[in-house]
Design a binder for these strands. Structure first.
Lengths: 224, 224
DNA sequence: ACAAATTTTTAGACTGGTCTAAATTTGATC
DNA sequence: GATCAAATTTAGACCAGTCTAAAAATTTGT
């Protein structure tokens, strides 16, 4: 009685999963999905009907959708595979962190439980991907230590850079160009009221300014 | 002006490539392809028209097909990816040689030149896959040292086991169960006329009998 | 050389995934 | 609570890839 889930359906489930976690756990609208996947609302409606028939989502016309437990399991497995492959690409094949997304989008649909279990072991059962995003474990459990963007801490002091919100190539390349990597220590020396920019020292280097836009996309933890 | 080649089209090209090399380099028929891919002849005809329009094959109705240079390059790239991924699965993830085919069938369609170049380097630029099949290089060149099945050597003496003809799980598991691995030395001690079976010693172990069916699917080189 | 058997192609239909254009529902505003 | 704009769904179309059934071409056997 196993339902077959196509690559396209997997992508819809992943999109719904991602969108529902953007702010609070919540319902996702047809338009949000069509924006995210770059296709038309009518197309999304058709797919929602199919996913609903397969019991992968709860769908009430005009009301938005939520994943069922089965849908959530499927989505999180795709996320797990995506993030594990990103670790493989960076750690083993020496790709840069801004180069791996498109390839992982393909690899995440390879279907073999045995493969993913062995890959996980081969990589040393990593807990985070190269962008600091947590990797769900084999049971679909996720480390929920959600870090907070730098600009939301309104205090000076020491932080550890643990992840990014924005995953675009240009943003990641920008961070690389200013010399910032996951795990670095950030010392916030000044917070400018008028434009919400931050004067920050990376590790022991010279201080530089982070715009609010940069600071809002950098996830940090207070350094112990 | 780059033509997009779908996963399905890649599989047809690979099938044509494989079938055309089975005996001599030759034309491939519609029925051969439909048998190989387990679909109907009518389906194959449709696809042949499409591949022909894309200049990937030379197709004359009722006459069979041959790959164009572009088609051959595409097919051989898929073969290269398949075999490199098989090496990865066996060497890095410790899969057994009879477990990797289905997974590699999926991985062979991942589309990234950079990925395959880095994977090749990571694996140490292997020349052969776990079944002894040669891996085409990045330019589509293939080691053409075609080994010969054991049963075609009508002489006793020492051989090296370099590959298999048959790739089925059951055959590979059979070889494993009799303790035979790529690279092993085979000493042919007797050839029985009446059933064409072979009495063979693997490395320094006890002698055993190979049926003609086994001997015909084992590729060997005369040991220097 | 011609009829029979086989192979291949054509015709027409279906599914998944997409689209545009039109109709419907929701919900915000006055 | 009636109206209007935005969001969503329905209707109808298209393409890729598959099928079955029927027609056409090729090959084979006597």
């Amino acid at each position: 009685m196993r339902v077959i889930i196509s690559l396209t359906e997997e992508n819809y489930l992943k999109a719904i999963y991602t969108l529902s976690h953007l702010f609070e756990e919540s319902e996702v609208s047809t338009n949000q999905i069509s924006d995210h996947l770059n296709n038309k609302a009518a197309t999304v409606t058709d797919m929602l009907k199919r996913l609903s028939e397969k019991k992968l989502i709860h769908y009430i016309p005009y009301q938005g959708v939520k994943l069922t437990e089965k849908g959530r399991q499927t989505a999180i497995k795709v996320v797990r595979k995506h993030r594990l492959w990103e670790v493989f690409l960076v750690d083993k094949l020496q790709f840069k962190w801004d180069e791996v997304h498109e390839i992982a989008e393909q690899l995440e649909h390879i279907n073999s439980d045995e493969l993913i279990q062995r890959l996980d072991k081969f990589l040393g059962k990593p807990k985070f991907d190269p962008h600091g995003d947590p990797i769900p474990d084999a049971n679909g459990q996720l480390n929920i230590v959600k870090a907070i963007p730098l600009n939301q801490h309104k205090i000076k002091g020491l932080f550890t850079f643990v992840g990014v919100c924005e995953h675009s190539k240009t943003f990641l390349q920008h961070l690389t160009s200013i010399g910032l990597k996951i795990g670095d220590t950030l010392k916030v020396e000044e917070i400018n009221e008028f434009d919400n920019s931050f004067k920050v020292k990376i590790n022991k280097n010279n201080s530089q300014f982070f715009s609010n836009k940069v600071a809002s996309n950098i996830l940090v933890e207070i350094k112990k």
